[in-house]
Design a protein around this nucleic acid. Structure first.
Lengths: 357, 357
DNA sequence: CACCGGATCCAATACGTATTAAGGACTCAG
DNA sequence: CTGAGTCCTTAATACGTATTGGATCCGGTG
């Protein structure tokens, strides 16, 4: 009846059975080392444990073992972003699933979000280190935080290719280079000979990769890069109908658009086309260099899919590799994207003569 | 350059600064007791901590009985359920937001899911104890796990009313009683005099609460409970067109349906009605006792909304109350639901004479 | 009898932190 | 110069478990 406030420990069991705590530990831990305990003692300990309602103290066990069996998840975006939910959610899903599969727990670093601007080193202290390792995520990162993290030799994996001067780090990235060049080749196959490329101006790695892929694809298709305009999208309203019309007049027949997080570039393209009466894809083909989470009533753009959930899973796998192996080399993994044939691409309008297959 | 594999501890800091580990602990723990340490020492310790990349060991602090600023989230459902995603997600969202606001981190206990069946005491270990406290969630719980948790005197809050024999526990629950009785009163106001109630057969607390509300509403409306059939929904296919027609023949003009997790009861009702040519709401009004996440093309059922996100937030608040206050009494919070007037309720078909307002 | 080997079990210790009683140094009044 | 008082720091200990190098006992062998 008397509710014992303190929960029973191995010492309590030991006292009751009349053995030492060490023996109890041997029995409880089970497995290999438990064989050296006499069968009678063993059973007595187990019975006492059951009677007392003993459960091992996870904190103590972990303290002893050194590892926490906790993986961290830190994102430079809000952890459960409301607006962008659908973009980041699959990553989280993959990370969570893989973490669970490997028998780890997942620590979400939410506390850092106070004050809007997310930093790892809030008050000089690196919170992430409570976890054994960490998966990082998000577009708006702080380079110096990342650099410091590398310097500390803290094991982590970024989802998305990231570079830090003077240090290589581990990441799982979508193969934007391959996916973009593939898109270019496909357009070329359809007969397009002059393409315009709308890229974001933040100069992040994903943007760089798409540009590399663009140039590479042009090369493979034998299209002179000089003839293909590259437009930097600073503000969304820099995409005007006039701009579009100018390109078409110059012989451009297809647009490759890098989607921004708020999808403003896509909306802007659509609006500009409408404004000057340009039909997609009849007058101009459009390809999205990514897989934005658009609304229900959005059109079925030709684009490529990121396997986000798989990327999340791979990130965890990489991280565990990092933790287990002594050899510390950073690991990079590139996950191919899958082209999605939508309805925004067609053969170029017949001007001189359509190039059928 | 030399990557030190072992995480630095307070002892390392102490050695470097030339003070004792105790002093380091005083400084690191910060807050009240940290005042008694000289400003110079204090700064030296903090700088050394930053330089070494020190982070407190969660397990050790927890073992000692201290706080982690970590809240756990344990769910008996998958943490990021794919199918039921939309039902549980708002809870998580609320928990996460509130946790972040209070400056805590959130630890998702995913690892326990090994073997499909989620248990807290997987191998005799209560993993939850690494966190300061825990929010629990999910319909398919294990009573004995819950009982053990109470016995251990571990601070936790359940989302959803739960009972355990011989112990009171803390929870944040939707006010199903009030919401259901309100629905009954509203139906009565429209003139309905005989209602049928379809309840799930699992006998969980939420089901009990709806039934209480049903009976209470009948009482307030002056409707004899004996005249209102209560149908236990074991299998979804127990709802047949014949059953429905029988009720209508008996004078039943409205159905109160408890939604199951897979929405099968709702689908079954809709199908049965269609099968025997019963129109909703012209021939029969239907009220959902809950707020299931239906597909896009589902009809606009009359139902009530759960404020899930708010419930998640309140759960965190309650949990922090539990942690802070010495007095250990369990706290319960009931969150009102909001009726949603859909298109599945109308006045009863005029048989003897419609009771207009 | 001395020695050995196997079978059981235990004492001691480490893990990293928080807490507390007590020690040391220094100041100030008498 | 002494005693009290103030301020800062530390030694010691506890938390619950896992591990390891012995200790103890016992029967058997040379």
């Amino acid at each position: 009846m008397a509710a014992q406030r303190r929960r029973p420990t191995q010492v309590d069991i030991a006292r009751r059975v009349g053995v030492s705590q060490a023996t109890v530990s041997l029995v409880i831990s089970g497995g290999a080392a438990s064989e050296q305990v006499a069968e009678g003692t063993r059973r007595a300990v187990l019975r006492a444990a059951a009677e007392l309602g003993y459960t091992v103290n996870a904190a103590a066990r972990r303290l002893k073992g050194g590892r926490n069996r906790m993986l961290g998840l830190y994102t430079f975006e809000p952890v459960f972003p409301v607006g962008q939910r659908d973009f980041y959610f699959p990553f989280l899903l993959g990370v969570e699933e893989a973490t669970a599969e490997y028998g780890y727990d997942l620590l979400l670093f939410s506390s850092a979000s106070s004050g809007g601007d997310r930093r790892i080193y809030a008050s000089g202290v690196n919170r992430l280190k409570v976890a054994d390792g960490c998966v990082l995520l998000g577009r708006h990162l702080h380079r110096d935080d990342l650099a410091a993290l590398v310097q500390e030799d803290f094991p982590f994996v970024f989802i998305g290719r990231r570079e830090v001067a003077g240090a290589e780090l581990s990441y799982v990235a979508a193969d934007y280079v391959g996916a973009t060049s593939g898109m270019v080749r496909e357009l070329a196959r359809l007969g397009h000979r002059r393409l315009a490329y709308l890229k974001l101006s933040d100069g992040q790695e994903p943007t760089q990769d798409r540009e590399s892929g663009f140039l590479q694809g042009l090369g493979e298709a034998g299209i002179p890069a000089g003839e293909c305009p590259v437009h930097l999208v600073g503000e969304a309203d820099s995409i005007t109908g006039d701009l579009l019309r100018g390109w078409l007049a110059d012989g451009v027949t297809a647009l490759l658009v890098e989607p921004s997080e708020d999808d403003s570039t896509i909306v802007a393209v659509e609006r500009a086309a409408e404004a000057v009466g340009v039909r997609i894809p009849e007058d101009c083909s459009v390809v999205l260099l990514g897989d934005p989470a658009l609304g229900e009533n959005a059109r079925d753009w030709t684009r490529f899919a990121l396997h986000r959930e798989q990327m999340g899973r791979e990130a965890v796998r990489l991280l565990l590799d990092l933790l287990d192996d002594e050899d510390d080399g950073p690991r990079q993994l590139s996950v191919p994207c899958t082209p999605i044939a939508g309805d925004s691409v067609a053969q170029p309008p017949a001007v001189t003569g359509g190039a059928a297959r």
